[in-house]
Amino acid sequence: MTTETAPIRKNSLYVSSSVFIWRSMLHSLRNTEALIMAIVLPIMLMLLFTYVFGGAIDPGGEYVNYVVPGIILLCAGYGSSSTAVDVATDMTNGIIDRFRTMPIPSIHVITGHVVASLCRNLVATGVVIGVALLVGYRPITSITAWLAAVAIIILFILTLTWLYAAIGLVAGSPAAASGYGFVLLFLPYLSSAFVPTETMPNWLQTVAENQPITPVIETIRALLSGNAVGDHIWWAIGWCVLILAGAIVWATATFHRKAGNR
């Protein structure tokens, strides 16, 4: 037998993904504490590294020109880590079951969070650059290099956000998601973000020079100071694309595996 099916129009991919983006954007805007943190943290870090540590690291006062790419990535790390919590919260709430039983590609719940994270982080990046300019940052560069730097930053944010989304899916609860995500926040410190790797002990140098964040930092730094990017840019893109692809596959697989197993 067949029951008469109600006249439900098949939804376009565009509509469902834009609805989920709208939803995540509203979440971001309404989560006041997180929003304030996203704006205040870049300001604090920028001031901290310029005025507190800067003098000791480089008494010449040039440190601000060195540290800006590092602060951008550090803030991107903090900014995208909330994606893990957002995703984990959705997965532990009954709403995910409702989305899953609707004739829509429910994975767009996750892409909604990713897009919102990208927007939040670009704002934070803007704040970092703004504050940096106020405290004496003087990038020497062309428009094309700026655009290239922004493109690398976007790629980095997407990579990190998808990774955090996967962590949020794997974690059993929002609190666990926040805990696991914390580990990743330390990576920028073990790179050339804040001090040249040559100043580190030998064993740490090997780690720092070969971890994914260092080429990203070096690429952005070179682009913003008018130097040649060399091999760094290919390493940066390579690492990001590899991790991004892995994170998307991991997240999608986990999303489907966890269906109904709350």
């Binding site: 029951t3 939803r23 409702r98």
Partner: peptide
């Protein structure tokens, strides 16, 4: 297409 599910926990968006 044919069903609607209201789960045991209210499936609404709190934000």
């Amino acid at each position: 297409q044919a069903i609607s599910l209201t789960g045991q926990f209210a499936a609404i968006d709190e934000m």
